[in-house]
Simulated scan of single mutants.
Amino acid sequence: MTDAMRAVFVELLVHGPLSRAEVARRLDLSPSALTKVAKPLLDAGYLREQSSDGQRASAGPHSRCRWTRPGRRSSGSS
Rank of each mutant, 00 (worst) to 15 (best):
Ala44Thr: 09
Met1Val: 05
Arg64Glu: 03
Thr35Ser: 12
Ala7Ile: 03
Lys39Ile: 09
Val37Ile: 14
Leu29Asn: 00
Pro70Ala: 04
Arg26Glu: 05
Tyr46Cys: 04
Tyr46His: 12
Leu18Met: 14
Ala59Cys: 11
Glu49Lys: 01
Asp43Tyr: 00
Trp67Met: 09
Arg20Ile: 02
Pro17Leu: 06
Val14Tyr: 13
Trp67Asp: 00
Ala59Asp: 10
Gly71His: 05
Arg73Gln: 15
Ser58Glu: 11
Ser63Tyr: 00
Arg20Thr: 08
Leu13Tyr: 12
Gln50Phe: 07
Ala59Trp: 05
Arg72Phe: 13
Arg56Cys: 04
Pro31Met: 02
Arg69Asn: 11
Ser58Val: 14
Thr68Glu: 07
Val10Gln: 12
Met1Cys: 04
Met1Trp: 10
Asp3Ala: 12
Ser74Val: 14
Leu18Ile: 05
Tyr46Ile: 03
Ala57Trp: 00
Ala24Met: 07
Tyr46Val: 06
Ala57Gln: 06
Val10Gly: 01
Ala21Leu: 07
Leu41Lys: 01
Arg66Ile: 03
Lys36Ala: 13
Gly16Ser: 10
Ala44Leu: 12
Pro40Tyr: 03
Leu18Arg: 14
Val23Gln: 04
Ser52Tyr: 08
Ala38Cys: 10
Asp53Lys: 09
Leu42Gln: 09
Lys36Thr: 11
Val8Phe: 01
Ser58Gln: 13
Ala24Leu: 06
Leu27Val: 05
Arg20Val: 05
Thr2Phe: 02
Gly16His: 08
Asp3Asn: 12
Thr35Gln: 11
Gly54Thr: 05
Gly60Trp: 00
Arg72Met: 15
Thr35Lys: 09
Tyr46Glu: 06
Met5Ala: 10
Lys39His: 13
Ser74Asn: 14
Leu12Gln: 08
Ser19Tyr: 01
Ala57Ser: 12
Ser51Thr: 12
Ala7Cys: 07
Ser74Lys: 11
Ser52Gln: 10
Ser32Thr: 09
Asp53Thr: 10
